[in-house]
Every structure is written in C-alpha cells, then in structure tokens.
Simulated scan of single mutants.
Amino acid sequence: MSDASKRHWVRWFVDYSALAVFLVAFFATGRDLQKATWALVAGSAMALVVGLAVERRIAPFPAIAGGAALLFGGLSLIFHDPRVLKIKPTVMNGLFGAALFGGLLMGKNPLKLVLADAFEMPNEVWRTLTVRYGLMFFALAALNEVVWRTQSDATWVLFRFPGLMILTLIFTLTQVPLLMKYVKAEDMPPPPTE
C-alpha cells in the first residue's frame, strides 16, 4: 500500500471511526446512550492517537472533531446528561457556519484557504461557495435540534451517523457543477484511451 493510500485510509479512520464505534455501541448495548458515549470518547481518543502515530501530526479538522467529541462526550458523562452530547452537532455546525460568515465579514475567505490548491476560482465564486456552505452548516445545526428534541435516541443516533455525513455528501455533490468549471487541469484524470 502506498504512503498516499495509507494516509487516505488513516484520515477516514480518524474522521469516522469514533462515530462508527458510537453507533455500534449504542445498538450493541441495548440502546444505552451512556455506554455508547463511553465508546465515543474512547474511540475519539484512539482515533487521534492513530492519526498522530501514522501521520506524525494531528490534522486540524480531525483534531477539532475529536476534541469536540472528547469535550462534549466527557461533559455528558460527567453530568449524566445526554443532552450535552446531543447538542454537539448543533454547536459545531453553528460554529462552522459562523466561522465561514465571520471570515467573509472580515474580508477573508476561509474555504479559499482550505481549497485553493485544488481550484482556481474568482473571488466572487469563492464567496458564493462560502455562503452556500455557511448556510448548509446552519441548516444542519437547526436540523439536529429538531431531530434530537422530537425523535427517539435511536433515530438521533442514526441521524448523527451516518445521517449527517450523507446529508453533507449530498450537499457537496450539488456543488460539483460549480467546482468542475474551475478544477485545475493538472488535477484532472487523463481521458480514457479506448
């Protein structure tokens, strides 16, 4: 396995393993949210350790996500209150949306800082994409509030993972036509020869 391929799988592991462990633990323990939260906290810590061991660093986004899982999960366990864990997606998505709009208000473009290596786009297109993603994060925050307040724990757990990931992927796919206009030519795969 090449180093790039290994890093790709490690990133997936770091990003999603703790949520997968949480999902499995929830249903394996008879839908015990407290025990599943212990699994989430342990899984988040393990994912960060694996990421550090393999990549020799902790990437910013997994560090934020893992740190938030440890913080909210830990507080949920300390206070014996699952609501603390349930508001994590609301808080995190709200913060991501606020960061994107805050960056725009300060004349910066946070998405351009992250994605500029892959796309050469005019500033107005970066602004459009940033606004769309900011609105998506706020929508996901609001949707999380509706789901955890009106649905069963089992429904919320499935919404949390894989639901939020699927919704984010679907939204990202709707942005592909805009992005494809500006993808750098050297990043495009070669055309088929047959």
Rank of each mutant, 00 (worst) to 15 (best):
residue 131 V to W: 08
residue 141 A to Y: 05
residue 106 M to T: 12
residue 146 V to Y: 14
residue 144 N to E: 05
residue 135 L to P: 01
residue 125 V to R: 12
residue 133 Y to Q: 03
residue 140 L to F: 10
residue 116 A to I: 12
residue 176 V to Y: 07
residue 92 M to L: 15
residue 105 L to Y: 13
residue 160 R to D: 13
residue 123 N to D: 15
residue 176 V to I: 15
residue 98 A to F: 14
residue 105 L to C: 07
residue 126 W to T: 11
residue 106 M to A: 14
residue 165 M to Q: 11
residue 134 G to I: 07
residue 145 E to N: 13
residue 113 L to E: 13
residue 131 V to S: 00
residue 138 F to K: 03
residue 130 T to Y: 08
residue 131 V to N: 01
residue 143 L to F: 15
residue 105 L to D: 02
residue 113 L to D: 14
residue 119 F to M: 12
residue 141 A to W: 06
residue 150 T to W: 03
residue 132 R to T: 00
residue 163 G to L: 08
residue 166 I to C: 03
residue 142 A to D: 01
residue 110 P to V: 07
residue 132 R to V: 00
residue 136 M to N: 07
residue 167 L to Y: 01
residue 172 T to V: 10
residue 128 T to P: 00
residue 139 A to Y: 07
residue 125 V to N: 01
residue 121 M to Q: 11
residue 131 V to F: 02
residue 120 E to R: 15
residue 173 L to Q: 13
residue 120 E to C: 02
residue 126 W to R: 13
residue 163 G to C: 08
residue 160 R to M: 12
residue 101 F to M: 11
residue 106 M to S: 11
residue 93 N to Q: 07
residue 134 G to P: 06
residue 120 E to A: 15
residue 162 P to A: 11
residue 164 L to N: 04
residue 109 N to A: 02
residue 159 F to Q: 02
residue 174 T to G: 02
residue 152 S to V: 07
residue 147 V to A: 10
residue 108 K to V: 00
residue 112 K to F: 04
residue 131 V to Y: 08
residue 171 F to Y: 10
residue 120 E to N: 15
residue 158 L to H: 04
residue 113 L to H: 12
residue 109 N to S: 10
residue 169 L to M: 13
residue 121 M to T: 09
residue 99 A to H: 07
residue 135 L to C: 14
residue 124 E to I: 05
residue 115 L to G: 05
residue 141 A to P: 08
residue 115 L to V: 08
